[in-house]
């Protein structure tokens, strides 16, 4: 039942008990950001589009709904838009492949850096189950918000921000504002 607190990475890695490989310190956030910016730029140059994440989840959900109830997908534009050609072959969906890439890249990076570990990130005063419930709830609210805003931090904020779309900056401002406002209410999951 040991809690698994992660150091913020700004300090050097503290000796960790029972780690097969000591986790390496994180990269400078500025360098990581520049790296991501270069990848984003590559997407512009090569594909004429930016990155994304929530769209891949939409595809998965729409394909699932199509299996369960094709009539729902046919009559509901919110699902139809993502289930279109993807119903026949979800793997033909650019965003879904990109998100698979994100997962693989993170897996390899984490493994090589000794940061791979089956664990639940939480503070010392919250049970695993409650933390997971909060994570699920947060995810659900985010999914709803991302659909309404037509994007998430990768697709709308990063891509739209770099391309100077007003909606992207509106999204960033409101998301940060709401997060700051609600943060005190969920502080106990980290303290």
């Amino acid at each position: 039942m040991a809690t698994l607190e992660r150091d913020t990475g700004r300090e050097r890695a503290r000796p960790r008990v029972a780690a097969a490989r000591a986790p390496r310190p994180y990269m400078s956030p500025y360098l990581a950001g520049v790296g991501i910016g270069i990848v984003l730029l590559l997407a512009f140059v090569l594909m004429g589009r930016g990155l994304g994440a929530s769209g891949a989840f939409s595809t998965v959900v729409s394909v699932g709904v199509a299996q369960a109830s094709p009539a729902t997908v046919a009559s509901n534009p919110a699902f139809a838009r993502y289930a279109g050609e993807g119903v026949a072959n979800p793997l033909a969906d650019w965003l879904l492949i990109e998100v698979i890439g994100i997962t693989l890249g993170a897996l390899v990076s984490g493994w090589l850096a000794g940061r791979f570990r089956f664990a639940t990130e939480r503070g010392p005063n919250i049970a695993v189950r409650n933390r997971l419930l909060l994570a699920f709830a947060g995810g659900a609210v985010m999914g709803f918000g991302a659909k309404l805003a037509r994007g998430c931090t990768s697709g709308l904020a990063l891509t739209g921000g770099a391309l100077l779309a007003p909606g992207a900056w509106i999204f960033v401002a409101t998301a940060f504002a709401a997060a700051f406002a609600v943060a005190p209410l969920v502080r106990r999951q980290w303290r």
């Binding site: 769209g55 838009r81 050609e85 994007g151 697709g155």
Partner: peptide
């Protein structure tokens, strides 16, 4: 004529 918009966004 069931149509689905081409998806370029996210």
């Amino acid at each position: 004529a069931r149509v689905k918009a081409i998806r370029r966004g996210c």
